[in-house]
Nucleic acid binder design. Structure first.
Lengths: 213, 213
DNA sequence: GGTTACATGTAACTAGTTACATGATTAG
DNA sequence: CTAATCATGTAACTAGTTACATGTAACC
């Protein structure tokens, strides 16, 4: 569940979103999709714990980045046609979730917690924009270390053709990812050569004086 | 659970094994390990359903292939030292599981069932030695098709640096696997050029006159 | 007027983890 | 004799799926 929490908070740290939209973004981000039977209970849990706040979005769509972000174009079109949207139709539609300060703190904790699992790393890296550069380098180096360790363990050589081929694939895949990591780590070190001064957060997360629940 | 069933039966189709040994082989085969809290209940279930039979291995170790296969060397050493092993010590130790004919039929079903999931493919391919060459080629081609489909879907280009890098990694990984599949498929076609006569099973799975469910 | 996509949720079930409990055998 | 590893299992809990239930809005 920490994995779902992580993915959800990672997306909400960028901008407020509603459940259905979160589901879509998770689907295209990672492999496979979250079932609604997992998603909505998870969001309710995050709400209860105070990591997010909810608001019904009958009229105001969440402040969008681009005018055609997913399903959010609908309201725009309706407004253009002059159809009354905020009118006396209560239509309890979308519920928009906004991350809170405790939520950001929890996210930070989940992002800096070392993980051996492949999927957890992917989820962490997807939200790496919410880490400082040094934290991000730590994340990448920890991953590289984990992959090296996985490659290092000597398996008794496989008698079966297919099992041995499968191991080849896994080894190749891990080696390729280490190379990918090396490039990323190098890129992190290159951007803004750190004078003794370290880490001026390069992606400010939207709010300045955020209110806490 | 079908995944565990598949992995377990795949190993047992090679030779009878006990739970602990199965656990070890699974650990070195795929990534990560099965917990005993999942393993033993699964074996009990397979037993109840008649897919495996059990026998207490107080004296006779399962007919081994090599004299030093894993923990099985222990009995050999003891026999050499003349220590009485089968003696009046009931020592309810290892429980050896042997696959049955219904079990093989079930395994065959699990192996030929098309799967989109990455881990299911890995488990299927690990037991590919128990398929005919044509079935195996089907398995590989289905996987290739699934990967191509995954690559084909156009994602709206990612604004975030890290998410976009993550997608690169996934794409590279899928492309590398397709190449790997191509080699394997070519190799399958090369071995024993099929005259009009197709599929003389090159790895007979222990029995000759197998019954079909 | 029907199909598709949007949107949120619940209930029953399935699968798996962690922690516990127990004990045998082997190597130093 | 003691630690590590072998070996099997159970109970409580956690996480997730599938199927159901309901309704709106957009497109053709």
């Amino acid at each position: 569940m920490t994995l779902l929490d992580l993915s959800l908070l990672g997306l909400l740290a960028d901008q407020p979103l509603h459940g259905y939209e979160l589901s879509k973004q998770l689907r295209e981000l990672g492999r496979g999709s979250v079932s609604y039977g997992a998603l909505y209970p998870a969001l309710a849990r995050l709400d209860r714990k105070g990591f997010v706040t909810t608001a019904a979005a009958t009229t105001e769509p969440p402040p969008d980045t681009a005018p055609m972000t997913g399903s959010l174009g609908a309201e725009v079109a309706r407004l253009r046609r002059g159809t009354p949207a905020r009118a006396q139709r209560p239509t309890r539609r979308r519920k928009v979730y906004t991350i809170t300060e405790p939520g950001r703190a929890y996210l930070h904790d989940l992002l800096t917690r070392p993980a051996e699992d492949d999927r957890t790393f992917a989820a962490q890296f997807a939200a790496a924009g919410h880490l400082t550069r040094t934290e991000r380098v730590d994340l990448l180096e920890h991953r590289r270390h984990a992959l090296r360790a996985r490659l290092a363990q000597d398996h008794p050589r496989e008698a079966d053709r297919y099992r041995s081929a499968l191991r080849d694939r896994d080894r190749l895949s891990d080696e390729a990812e280490i190379e990918w990591l090396d490039h990323l780590i190098a890129a992190e070190r290159d951007t803004q050569i750190p004078h003794p001064v370290d880490d001026p957060v390069e992606r400010s997360p939207r709010t300045v004086g955020g209110s806490v629940s």
